Amino acid sequence: MKYTKEEARKRRHFRIRNKIQGTKARPRLNVFKSNQYFYAQIIDDFKGVTLVSSSSLKMDLKNKCNIEAAIAVGKDIAKKAKAKKISTVVFDRGGYLFHGKVKAFAEAVKEEGIQF
């Protein structure tokens, strides 16, 4: 049985989510990318609450879903996390390969001082 790209990504994401859970001490940093925008949020899974979120939707960028946008979102969410005194997170790549936009995003967050 063949899966579409999206179905395969969702299956990978469910596998990852069975192993990763965000706590108050180490919340989960989740990534989602659509064809037009790049989104990220930091989530406390025990309370079911989004602590910090950021997206390229409201940023003033020429192209809102490329590597530059991913880096901008990474820097923005790291600044917001530091403001909320979040220094360590569990990275949830959302079923995407750790390559390209996702990798650039992760490196931008690490450069700003958030640890995985």
Results as ranks from 00 to 15, higher is better:
1 M>R: 02
2 K>C: 08
11 R>V: 10
12 R>N: 14
13 H>F: 00
15 R>C: 03
17 R>F: 02
27 P>E: 14
27 P>T: 02
28 R>F: 08
30 N>H: 07
31 V>N: 06
33 K>G: 04
33 K>E: 13
33 K>M: 04
34 S>V: 11
35 N>I: 07
36 Q>K: 05
37 Y>A: 00
38 F>V: 15
38 F>I: 15
38 F>H: 07
41 Q>D: 15
42 I>P: 14
42 I>G: 08
42 I>F: 04
43 I>F: 03
47 K>P: 12
47 K>G: 10
50 T>V: 13
50 T>W: 06
50 T>A: 08
57 L>F: 05
58 K>V: 13
59 M>Y: 09
61 L>R: 03
61 L>H: 08
62 K>T: 13
63 N>I: 12
63 N>Q: 12
64 K>E: 15
66 N>A: 09
67 I>H: 00
67 I>A: 07
68 E>Y: 00
69 A>Q: 10
71 I>D: 12
71 I>E: 15
73 V>M: 03
73 V>T: 04
73 V>L: 04
75 K>F: 02
76 D>N: 11
77 I>T: 03
77 I>V: 07
80 K>T: 08
82 K>D: 15
83 A>M: 12
85 K>C: 06
85 K>V: 04
87 S>W: 09
87 S>V: 01
88 T>N: 11
89 V>T: 05
89 V>H: 07
90 V>K: 01
91 F>K: 00
91 F>C: 05
93 R>L: 02
95 G>V: 05
97 L>C: 04
97 L>I: 13
97 L>E: 15
97 L>N: 13
98 F>C: 08
104 A>L: 03
105 F>N: 12
106 A>Y: 06
108 A>S: 12
109 V>W: 11
111 E>R: 01
115 Q>F: 02
115 Q>M: 05
115 Q>C: 05
116 F>N: 07
